[in-house]
Design a protein around this nucleic acid. Sequence first.
DNA 1: CAAAAATTGCTTTACGTACCTCAGTAACCT
DNA 2: AGGTTACTGAGGTACGTAAAGCAATTTTTG
Lengths: 341, 341
Amino acid sequence: MRPTVHHVAEEAGVSLATVDRVLNRRPGVRAKTVTRVNEAIAKLGYVRDISAANLAKQRVYNLVFIIPEGPNSFMLGLESELGQAKLYSALERINLDILKVRAFDSDALANVLDGLDLTQISGVALVATESHRVQGALARLRQANIPVVTLVSDVSAAHRDHYVGIDNVAAGRTAASLMGRFVGHKPGKIALLAGSMLVRDHVERRIGFEQVISAEFPELDCLTVQEGRDDAMVTRSVLADFLGREPGIVGLYSIGAGNRGVIDVLTSKPEYGSIAVVAHELTEHSKRALREGVFDAVINQDAGHEVRSAIRLLKASIDETQVIAKQEIIRIEIYIRDNLP
Amino acid sequence: MRPTVHHVAEEAGVSLATVDRVLNRRPGVRAKTVTRVNEAIAKLGYVRDISAANLAKQRVYNLVFIIPEGPNSFMLGLESELGQAKLYSALERINLDILKVRAFDSDALANVLDGLDLTQISGVALVATESHRVQGALARLRQANIPVVTLVSDVSAAHRDHYVGIDNVAAGRTAASLMGRFVGHKPGKIALLAGSMLVRDHVERRIGFEQVISAEFPELDCLTVQEGRDDAMVTRSVLADFLGREPGIVGLYSIGAGNRGVIDVLTSKPEYGSIAVVAHELTEHSKRALREGVFDAVINQDAGHEVRSAIRLLKASIDETQVIAKQEIIRIEIYIRDNLP
DNA sequence: CAAAAATTGCTTTACGTACCTCAGTAACCT
DNA sequence: AGGTTACTGAGGTACGTAAAGCAATTTTTG
């Protein structure tokens, strides 16, 4: 039998009300008594029964997720995972509100953050674009004791409680190792294609990528980064242009989203078939590209895992409970044709 | 506000007791009334409050995990994850019992299964070795309405409710694709090292591996499978012998456990440094081997994820609730030096 | 030392579900 | 019609915790 508050009260020689005050940090208990109660808790190994507490509290967790709008598949995937999560989390008294802001627009993000009614909100998760205004808005949230989790794209550690996402430098390094091996120590040029060099995660991936290429595959030469704004149309024209201009390209690293455009260009000319391609984010398009041999590897972070992890972390912060650290690590997943889920 | 049993009772025009009888499948309700109640449930979108139900039920879930003993790192990892899970799951009224049987011994497994007191058990997870006796024992469990989940190694689908683990044929294919690319289309021989060809998962991995090698890398030649019994000592002598005997080996696929032995042999002679190595299971040893360039890639299944998934699946079976399907898919993880967790 | 303030105890109600008893009603069969 | 069976209702207690009000006690303060 697990000990209950009653046992704790008895053990500490105080009343149930006092135990309750201690447990819920309510005022009106002498420090000495608090200690006695805590000792009793430790001695009995008392752990609060979450089911019962939730029942009594009638608490609802109002979690706000802020994600960029725009038609790129990864964010659409994130949104659909959020929709899924919304269904299941209703069973656990969790309310998910999903807000969208313009991509790459930190002012819009700051506006949304400033507009939140802090009395109605128990936790916030956001895909961050960093700026002073955003930092200020986050500081205000944390001052109000509202936990903040960054998703996919981080801000500096001082402005959030957790980051849920991958180490993008390591992701870039991973891409480079794969690229180097797929090309197979033949000299040649590598094309880099990002969404925007203003986004921290893309910058970091590039850094990691070039680190490894220059250190371990010096026969490969990284060209200037092209920007496709994470948009299939833009990507298509930028990349078609670039490949036409630059002869001797043996590899392509697609750092951001907009895979559809990349696939279109690569399948447009047979001679592009020999280019080794490493891209990011597993979507229906990139899966197909892997199956058909257009892409050689895709680096992915699991959006569903990220959403669930963010929810667990926010809830744990609110309840002041522990999380299983290992479960919250987001993997840098490598997919090739053969290990697709 | 979420609807409660009271609302359902009112909506259906019956008493609370009747709703309760319907919900908990107790006898003594006319079919017509059952329908009325179910319609009310559907109309209101009533969902049982799990917290409250657990509290009232005072139910404890007694889950039994049966895993092979033996000193290989993967199983030790599984065990440690089970230990972890045991701590956390106590909070959710889940009791984990961990039983060990001799590895590769289906009779011992059947004995353990037959020895279970079915009245005391709510669910079973096991690392299966298949045999008629095991099948019979599993059938008995399922007849007693006890959900069965296989872990890491499967039996035929008729004898369990779920399989928690990876598709081992696909894992073998993945290993082969990586191997072929790492070797880089130079002709040569590939050494295969398994634990035992009596274990289904090892057989399947080999099949997948040879499929891809023969179809896409015909310049590579797979040699006879060597068996190391998933034991570092045995592996060491078997492999050292084999590599000494066979010249021209360019790649090694280590299908099972016993990585320590593999690493010892590979680092024993400098000329082995050029062999491309793909192994299974991420452990401290294999991580170090990746960092130091002894291994080129490791295929992994996340033991922690598997344990948590098995628990969730068993609990969902017992409670007759839904699971989030995507969350329960065990990935075929690829690790290289750069994406180690 | 008395008054004020702080601390503690006692008791009750509530959360939503499970499960029990007992009484009552309806339907069915002979 | 009478009896039997099958269903249904009413009401209660329980689970462990939260949260409140108010009384009683102790401690602090002037």
